[in-house]
């Protein structure tokens, strides 16, 4: 067992722990923080079913962003859908036998890899070219794009330039899952790819990547517009009320 295998295996466990624990803590925190007032951005659905549809449109189609700016929507949506397809394609490294739909998605996943890198590059270009976006960009905004772009490019390089022993990689991945470590092939492209992925997993709940769970807790989007029909009372507001009586 090489040193690289041990280091990467340990890093993967640590990152997963850090990422999952952080995310769980953040989601728990969001869920437990009260939303004392009804503040959906109207016009808003008046029923829970309507809210579910609104959220679905936001998550799958980026409806609000579409209204805001077609370029940001195009590149942003392209990147996210491509990322989803690429992740689906990668499931073949973690499943044995490979699920049928994962097999089916393989060729799309490949094009998606290119679309993902293209979308990211365009999003990054905006941070330099558009004065307003340049003004609001922080170093971490650039680094996040660099990180994702690095993951995409290093991944594609293993497809189009320098192949790695993909069978061994899969054995390593399954080995991680079942705590039966297998050697990781020594390949610089692979090392870069995996290291960046580890970083991404680890920082997820401590960075702006929190936009993903955040959307589901956004009162502007997830509240039904029914304040007259149903009295809304947060726990602390109810306590306030009781204290007064």
């Amino acid at each position: 067992m090489s040193a690289a295998t041990v280091v990467f295996a340990l890093l993967f466990y640590a990152a997963t722990l850090l990422g999952a624990a952080g995310l769980a803590w953040r989601i728990r925190d969001y869920a437990r923080t009260p939303a004392p007032l009804k503040i959906p951005t109207t016009p808003a659905p008046t029923t829970t079913g309507g809210v579910v549809l609104r959220m679905l449109r936001e998550v799958a189609l980026f409806e609000s962003l579409f209204k805001a700016n077609l370029w940001i929507w195009l590149f942003g949506w392209m990147f996210h859908v491509a990322l989803a397809l690429v992740l689906a394609r990668h499931l073949r490294y973690f499943t044995e036998p490979v699920w049928f739909w994962v097999v089916w998605v393989q060729p799309f996943g490949l094009y998606a890899g290119l679309a993902m890198v293209g979308g990211l590059a365009a999003l990054w270009a905006r941070r330099f070219l558009v004065e307003r976006i340049r003004y609001i960009s922080t170093p971490s905004d650039h680094m996040m794009l660099a990180l994702l772009l690095g993951i995409g490019v290093s991944g594609l390089s293993m497809k189009f330039m320098s192949h790695t022993d993909i069978v061994a990689v899969k054995a390593f991945a399954l080995g991680l899952i079942f705590f039966d470590w297998q050697p990781l092939p020594a390949h610089p492209g692979l090392f870069v790819h995996l290291f960046l992925v580890i970083v991404l997993i680890a920082i997820f709940p401590y960075s702006k990547l929190l936009h993903a769970p955040g959307l589901f807790f956004s009162p502007g989007r997830n509240q039904a517009d029914n304040p007259r029909e149903q009295r809304h009372l947060a726990a602390w507001a109810a306590k306030l009320e009781k204290a007064k009586v």
Partner: peptide, 21 residues
């Protein structure tokens, strides 16, 4: 502690720029 909206809004922004204009 008292306003979920505030907490989520301060966390979630990715500086996409959709609101800038």
């Amino acid at each position: 502690q008292n306003y979920r909206g505030l907490k989520v809004y301060l966390d979630a922004c990715v500086h996409c720029g959709a609101c800038t204009d």
